[in-house]
Design a protein around this nucleic acid. Structure first.
Lengths: 206, 206
DNA sequence: TGAAAAACATTCAGGGCTGCCGGTAACTTC
DNA sequence: GAAGTTACCGGCAGCCCTGAATGTTTTTCA
């Protein structure tokens, strides 16, 4: 129904444009479903309904559900990286580089995108096909995250092992993200993150 | 098949004994399924198969699947509490009380039991019935965990806010548990936990 | 011991989901 | 502009899962 609007303004679409558009619609709908319904209740039917696309079209672009999910992971990770890099580009000075680095990780590893990723990881634990599809993408995210973190800290900060504060923070945030899924208190999470920031600055600050 | 053995040694069983036995079999099988198959692929059929019990018996004790899952949560949490308390009873001295407290939390919040809990929590996020069933049980676990942690530390340690180190640790461990589900490196997790122990002792130690 | 109740077994119907298939419309290429 | 390719549509079959309903065995209690 909404499609007709863009079709009116631009009746002719390149095949490539159509493909890109439909795939994007499907992948975004998939993420929506993961966030709102969870992996178990996410059906290709519902995805198509939300994307405003027929089941036939879905199957044309992603032959199987697993294929669709695998592509959704890539889509998701690129969105997460965008979100971490956005607003992380100003030159940083002073001892609160670490604090800002933690904020960056918070942007990337919490929120609805992270919820979707968690659904997929949990599902992938017992789904070999999904698991093997996710593994390299996860590695890429980890590598990019480490790069961004090092950039923010600058080489001279945090001594010889910037990885420890990085992964301590990431794992803590993942735990907190899980807590938010359970329905914990947001104020408490904020408090815990602040406490960790203080500790991290004291421990790893220049 | 195996049931016949116990039936031979003790052909007569009290109704209460039969009930208890069957429920235990079902709940343990449920946890097994959650760990090995994940929530999405856990069917009542498979649970019955593993428990060696007919579907009728399952339905007699747990009318609906949701009811079974809710009971599984209780079963699970009581197992986790047992595991934390076991070996945590010796009198503790010295500054590594905190370190031992962290070990206790590690016992409780990682491993296969924790995996099962995580499956349920993630599923419960988008399943209102399961969610409301889990909420109070989770609260009880949190309360008991806090009690145990305070006992181990002793009142004089950690100042006025023992909750901060406690929940920082729990959330970190949950993040690490998630990492293990993804397939991260166990040695790295151990390293991160050790680093956290050092920091915690330094920060919160007496 | 015999009736009532509890525990257990088996089969059935309804529903949703996935993957497949034949057909149609839109774009591309020559 | 006509053939060929790509994108898209709607319906169908098979599968599994859940909950219900009915029948059978075991224990309990009077």
């Amino acid at each position: 129904m909404l499609a007709s609007i863009s079709l009116v303004t631009r009746p002719r679409l390149t095949q490539q444009e159509r493909t890109e558009r439909t795939r994007e619609l499907l992948l975004d709908a998939t993420i929506d479903c993961l966030v709102e319904l969870g992996y178990a209740r996410t059906s290709t039917n519902e995805i198509c309904r939300r994307a405003g696309v027929s089941r036939g079209a879905q199957q044309h672009h992603f032959a199987t559900k697993a294929e669709l999910m695998a592509s959704a992971v890539e889509h998701l990770v690129s969105k997460i990286i965008d979100r971490m890099t956005s607003g992380a580009r100003e030159a940083l000075t002073g001892p609160d580089r670490i604090s800002q680095g933690i904020d960056m990780l918070w942007r990337g590893y919490s929120g609805s995108l992270s919820t979707a990723v968690m659904e997929l990881w949990v599902a992938g634990r017992t789904d070999p096909e999904l698991h093997t599809a996710m593994q390299p993408i996860d590695k890429a995210l980890a590598r990019r995250t480490a790069e961004l973190f090092r950039e923010m800290l600058g080489e001279q900060v945090a001594g010889d092992r910037p990885d420890l504060p990085l992964w301590l923070t990431v794992n803590l945030i993942r735990g907190l993200a899980l807590d938010s899924m359970i329905g914990g208190d947001p104020a408490r999470r904020r408090q815990l993150l602040d406490e960790w920031k203080t500790i991290a600055v004291k421990t790893y600050g220049s």
